[in-house]
Simulated scan of single mutants.
Amino acid sequence: MIRLCAVSDLDDPGSKGFHNERGHLFAVRQGLQVFVYVNSCPHFGINLEWQPDQFLDSEKRLIQCATHGAQFLIETGECIAGPCPGDQLTSVECEVRDGVVYLP
């Protein structure tokens, strides 16, 4: 198992990027839930953020690609607006145990 971060390291709601042996990833916290995705926009294959840890729109309700404005649901990674509707971010399985996010 890979220790990604403590849940308390993520704002609620908030996001944070990571680079480890699994590649470039980011985690999004929404309440008690944490979602992890590969940091790659399905439209163009580039990282989603321009600034470190900035993966959410201004209202912190959707994941947003900084380059083309594609917006994705936090819970599923599905694109609902922008140049790639219907595409999805690649989700990464995670587990929250004792306040820590792990990747199996």
Score class of each variant (00 low, 15 high):
Arg22Ala: 14
Asn20Lys: 10
Gly45Asp: 01
Cys94Phe: 04
Cys94Pro: 02
Ala6Ile: 05
His19Pro: 00
Gly77Thr: 07
Gly86Thr: 08
Val28Phe: 12
Ala70Trp: 06
Gly23Lys: 09
Gly45Val: 04
Phe72Trp: 00
Leu89Arg: 02
Glu78Cys: 01
Gln54His: 04
Asp9His: 10
Arg29Lys: 05
Ile46Thr: 09
Phe72Ile: 00
Asp9Tyr: 07
Gln30Phe: 06
Val36Asn: 11
Asp87Thr: 11
Gln33Cys: 09
Tyr102Pro: 00
Phe18Asn: 03
Leu73Trp: 08
Ser15Arg: 11
Glu78Asp: 07
Leu48Met: 13
Leu10Arg: 05
Arg61Glu: 14
Gln33Ser: 14
Phe72His: 05
Phe44Asn: 12
Gly82Tyr: 13
Glu78Thr: 12
Glu95Trp: 07
Leu103Gly: 12
Leu32Cys: 09
Ala81His: 15
Pro52Trp: 00
Ala70His: 01
Leu48Ala: 05
Cys65Glu: 00
His24Pro: 00
Gly14Leu: 04
Val36Cys: 09
Cys65Pro: 08
Glu75Ala: 14
Ile80Gln: 10
Gly69Tyr: 02
Pro83His: 02
Leu32Phe: 13
Pro85Trp: 06
Asn47Asp: 08
Ile63Lys: 04
Gly45Arg: 05
Gln30Ser: 11
Leu62Ile: 00
Gly23Gln: 06
Gly17Arg: 08
Gly31Phe: 12
Gln54Leu: 00
Arg22Met: 14
His43Trp: 13
Thr76Gly: 00
Pro42Ala: 05
Gly82Ile: 11
Gln54Ala: 01
Leu56Ile: 07
Gln64Leu: 03
Ala66Trp: 01
Gln88Pro: 02
Gly77Asn: 09
Asp87Met: 12
Val101Thr: 05
Arg22His: 15
Leu73Ser: 11
Asp12Ala: 15
Gln33Phe: 07
Ala6Phe: 12
Phe35Val: 02
Val92Cys: 10
Gly14Ser: 02
Arg3Pro: 01
Pro42His: 06
Pro104Val: 03
Gly77Phe: 11
Ile2Cys: 10
Cys79Val: 08
Lys16Met: 08
Glu93Gly: 11
Asn39Lys: 03
Val100Trp: 06
Glu95Met: 15
Tyr102Ser: 01
Cys94Asn: 15
Leu48His: 10
Leu56Pro: 08
Ser8Ile: 06
Leu56Glu: 10
Leu89Val: 06
Glu75Phe: 10
Glu59Trp: 03
Phe55Asn: 01
Asn47Phe: 04
Val34Glu: 10
Ala81Gln: 08
Met1Tyr: 07
Ala81Tyr: 13
Tyr37Val: 06
